[in-house]
């Protein structure tokens, strides 16, 4: 079998100018279970699908609160994510300590991106094997960033990473116009529906395998609505809202068929 000589470390370019070790790290992200993020004018939402190792084991942690105005969703190596999220937590606390101000979202994202880049340019290091969705609010409003092991970060309107995330992205692209004007609760429902698209036939979203994180600006005051993580029984109303919207959707679909 052909042996690729250029994929042993992150400090070797292939003749095409690619760095295979970084590309392989991106594969690790695709092995992780899917997470979805999306924003409207006031809120940023993260939703994630949690796996359990076996029937009786607990489920993974997919969404982590970083500070009261920011959270991340992870896909890939959870231990790498922990290193990054600890760093983010410290930096955010540092900002509150020295300036009395919440860390701007783009700045913390740039900082972890720069750390990740370093790991792709020095021998003896390896790229992080995790992708992140960073959701938060600052003076400029709500934000969603995608972070990749390459150190690439992009601000997105909506995004999904992890296994079978393409289905979620397709859903998000199709409903992009609705996202911006949606309400807080509608945005969560859109997130859950995007997540649902990625499930294989025999699976469904339950209070055990779903995780939702919301952060935003309060409608009336414009003040920060602190990051809230919904897990377990707290998810019931959100999943019910999802179900209701599904019913509405199918009805609509049926009538349209009749029309045509």
């Amino acid at each position: 079998m052909f042996r690729n000589n250029y994929d042993n470390d992150a400090v070797t370019f292939s003749p095409q100018g690619r760095i295979f070790q970084v590309e392989y790290a991106q594969e690790a992200v695709k092995q992780g279970s899917v997470v979805v993020g999306l924003v409207n004018k006031t809120h940023a939402v993260l939703v994630g699908l949690k796996r359990n190792a076996e029937e009786l084991s607990s489920y993974q942690k997919k969404i982590i609160e970083v500070d009261s105005h920011m959270g991340i969703a992870i896909a890939g190596l959870a231990s790498d994510a922990r290193v990054l999220s600890n760093y983010m937590k410290q930096q955010c606390l540092g900002s509150r300590m020295t300036y009395g101000r919440a860390m701007p979202v783009d700045r913390i994202v740039t900082q972890i991106a720069d750390r990740a880049q370093t790991n792709t340019q020095q021998y003896g290091k390896r790229p992080y094997g995790v992708g992140l969705l960073v959701a938060g609010v600052d003076e400029a409003g709500p934000h969603l960033f995608e972070f990749q092991p390459s150190g690439m970060t992009q601000e997105m309107v909506a995004c999904a990473i992890g296994a079978r995330s393409q289905m979620a992205r397709t859903y998000l692209e199709r409903n992009l116009d609705q996202l911006n004007d949606s309400s807080r609760d509608e945005l969560i429902t859109h997130g859950l529906r995007a997540l649902k698209e990625t499930l294989s036939q025999d699976k469904e979203l339950t209070v055990d395998n779903t995780s939702v994180g919301v952060v935003g600006l309060k409608h009336e005051t414009g003040k920060v609505e602190s990051f809230k993580l919904y897990e377990g029984q707290q998810l019931l109303p959100l999943l019910e809202a999802l179900e209701r919207s599904d019913v509405g959707e199918t009805k609509e679909g049926e009538t349209m068929e009749v029309d045509s």
Binding site: Y99, G100, R101, P104, D106, D138, E139, A140, G141
Partner: peptide
């Protein structure tokens, strides 16, 4: 250039 300026209190 976008937003997030330090104010006098910061």
């Amino acid at each position: 250039a976008h937003g997030n300026q330090l104010n006098a209190k910061n």
